[in-house]
């Protein structure tokens, strides 16, 4: 590794934590020649750490957090290894182990979110501003994938509503759309599927303003690993996982329902609302039960709860709505 000016070192060139730790392990056992070569590389990294303001964003960096009354209790957490190595992030490959291998290419600094549409005035938020906007909370949520597997994830973030207030949406804003980062030179795996990018998701304004909807920066008390949607993503725990867009670069306030990726791709399979609902089967499988990730095959199966178990908090958002029709 060349020792460049710190500002020349793109964050994508900074060694991911895992590799870094591997190297440490390797160093410990290596013969002296290898130690010397390795030490030079570690030295360069240290130098970058000292001078680069971006380094605070490295996956695995501890975040300062506070407790939250909105955290889910009574569930065993899914091991971090699975949360970070079993991902659907098709821009980095369609297999679940690909994002962990490929998402290192995601340039997480500098990073901004553009706010557009029905707002007082268009704004741009820097990721480091967003990290300091509100105290970061530890929030454990159940995570239910539309593919019928589930996890329990200790996210770190604050209510999306806090961010939306800063965006000053107009009264005419009825929906909010989230757009994920997309650059086909970086995410060259995106062409493994026929999906049209960038990834787009959306919520109705009242859903987005619900305190459970989380603007998310971390998990397990640390900065989000890239494959989990670094540096900032949405988490909507009462909806199927694909509603929770990753690596957000733009937020648009709209007076009409936005077009969203999976709904466009297969409208009969993925509704705009996509609330977790055991009564509405996916055309290709039942949604009555789910498989909890990380358990042995004979004890994975469990009952899926309406609104993923968050009905007490969110059911009132849908009063009077036919949830079988608006699935």
């Amino acid at each position: 590794m060349l020792i460049g000016k710190p500002s020349d070192i793109p964050s994508s060139a900074i060694t991911p934590k895992e590799q870094y730790l591997n190297r440490r392990r390797f160093l410990r056992g290596a013969i002296s020649g290898a130690v010397a070569a390795g030490a030079a590389a570690v030295g360069a990294e240290r130098l970058a750490e000292v001078f680069s303001p971006r380094i605070g964003a490295l996956a695995g960096t501890k975040l300062e957090t506070v407790k939250s009354p909105l955290t889910t209790t009574g569930e065993e957490l899914t091991p971090e290894e699975y949360i970070t190595h079993y991902n659907n992030f098709y821009e980095f490959g369609v297999d679940k182990d690909q994002p962990a291998k490929n998402a290192g290419a995601l340039p997480i600094r500098p990073w901004t979110i553009k706010v557009e549409g029905k707002v007082a005035k268009p704004l741009t938020f820097d990721i480091d501003t967003l990290l300091k906007l509100r105290p970061l909370e530890d929030r454990v949520y159940r995570h239910r994938c539309v593919e019928a597997w589930s996890m329990v994830i200790p996210w770190v973030g604050y209510s999306l509503s806090e961010f939306i207030k800063q965006c000053q949406p107009l009264a005419s804003a009825k929906y909010v759309q989230f757009l994920s980062y997309y650059d086909k030179r970086v995410e060259k795996w995106a062409s493994e599927s026929t999906i049209s990018w960038p990834y787009s998701e959306g919520l109705r304004m009242d859903e987005a303003m619900h305190p459970l909807a989380l603007l998310t920066f971390g998990l397990y008390g640390e900065v989000l690993p890239n494959q989990d949607g670094a540096p900032v993503r949405i988490v909507v725990p009462w909806k199927y996982g694909f509603k929770s867009a990753k690596s957000i670069v733009a937020v648009r306030f709209l007076d009409k329902q936005p077009s969203t990726t999976w709904n466009d791709q297969a409208p009969n399979e993925y509704g705009f609302y996509s609330n977790v609902n055991p009564e509405v089967d996916h055309p290709r499988w039942s949604q009555k039960t789910e498989r909890r990730v990380g358990l042995p095959f004979y004890s994975q199966r469990r009952t899926t709860l309406m609104f993923n178990g968050y009905g007490d908090q969110v059911a009132s958002l849908y009063t009077g709505m036919n949830l079988k029709k608006n699935f």
Binding site: Y82, H85, Y86, K96, E147, W149, R291, V293, G294, L295, P296, F297, Q300, R301
Partner: peptide, 15 residues
């Protein structure tokens, strides 16, 4: 994998 419980995140789907 089944005996050593090392079938990964979602053993049912893996099988």
């Amino acid at each position: 994998g089944a005996v050593t419980n090392s079938l990964g995140a979602d053993p049912t789907a893996r099988i």
